[in-house]
Write a protein that binds this DNA or RNA. Structure first.
Lengths: 159, 159
DNA sequence: AATATATACAGAATAATATTCTTTTAATAT
DNA sequence: ATATTAAAAGAATATTATTCTGTATATATT
């Protein structure tokens, strides 16, 4: 068969490690750090992008700077037609919703939402969520303080 | 007093919008897109970094490519000395733990964890979490499928 | 109002990088 | 053995980043 094949070597891992730390590290610097030619690194990076190992490069913006002070997680119980994720896709369309996960157990979703404040959250629930008929109930968890928030993956080492 | 002052204008927002889409967009391209000189854009980007509006640039790596197929959220009930977040800091040190949020309600944390598989999760709970004495109980939610996972913020428009 | 002071930006010059192409080497297949 | 492929070095050129200078505009000071 052959679904998706990655097959990364140690050099790829090192590139990923560097990119994960600072996605704007330039080619020449990566090359220097790994003791290789820039052209070789360029090829590898392009290949990593093509193979969808690197999905995208994003800037992490301070939510406070955009006055988005409230982070919440909401469990959503919904009656999706079996096997579909209609509700999930609708939820994903809401800009304030950063994550939508289909979770095991009581046929539901867990979503992560960022709003200006409590009023913004109420708004979102009333308007955006309110429009989705299939939603049966919700349970909201408010975040008081975030201690860590990264999406860095653990990259294997050679041993 | 004066905590942190941001104060961003429309041009800053546009830069953030571009950077949020692709953090490797180069200076010259941003300048072209906004119809400004590269030197002006460079100044602004540096200022955004200094002011901690842009916190970092990261590459989003495909978890599957690193064989990290299991995503879980774990609610952790813990008895932290009041006002401290000792447990939170200990949790944050675990590499597989991508997020640690101090949540309202039953003095607990919500963490987001990525492991290879169920065995990896069990391992982590037994070893890493097991070592933290203050943890009273945990409740784990397994993600079956992720519909959306971004950290893009909603950037204000001028109207 | 007149004069400083600071800020944002353009434009030009130069340093550094990206990108492309060619060649070599090594690994793998035939 | 002999192709074939993949990875990478190295060189040449196209693009960018970066620094510096000058100018306009706003903001403050007296």
């Amino acid at each position: 068969m052959g679904k998706l094949e990655f097959s990364l070597d140690q050099i790829d891992y090192q590139i990923l490690r560097i990119m994960q730390e600072n996605a704007r590290t330039n080619n020449a610097d990566i090359a220097r750090e790994l003791g290789m030619a820039p052209s070789a690194i360029l090829e590898r990076v392009k290949k990593l992008e093509q193979k969808q190992v690197i999905l995208q490069y994003n800037a992490k913006i301070n939510p406070d700077a955009l006055d988005q002070k409230l982070l919440s997680f909401i469990f959503i119980k919904a009656q999706d037609p079996i096997g579909t994720q209609k509700v999930g896709l609708l939820l994903a369309k809401i800009p304030e919703v950063q994550e939508v996960h289909d979770i095991a157990g009581d046929d539901g979703y867990l979503i992560k939402v960022r709003t200006n404040d409590a009023a913004g959250l109420v708004d979102l629930m009333r308007n955006a969520l309110g429009k989705i008929q299939e939603i049966i109930s919700t349970r909201t968890t408010i975040v008081l303080e975030t201690v860590k928030e990264e999406q860095k993956l653990v990259i294997p080492t050679e041993d």
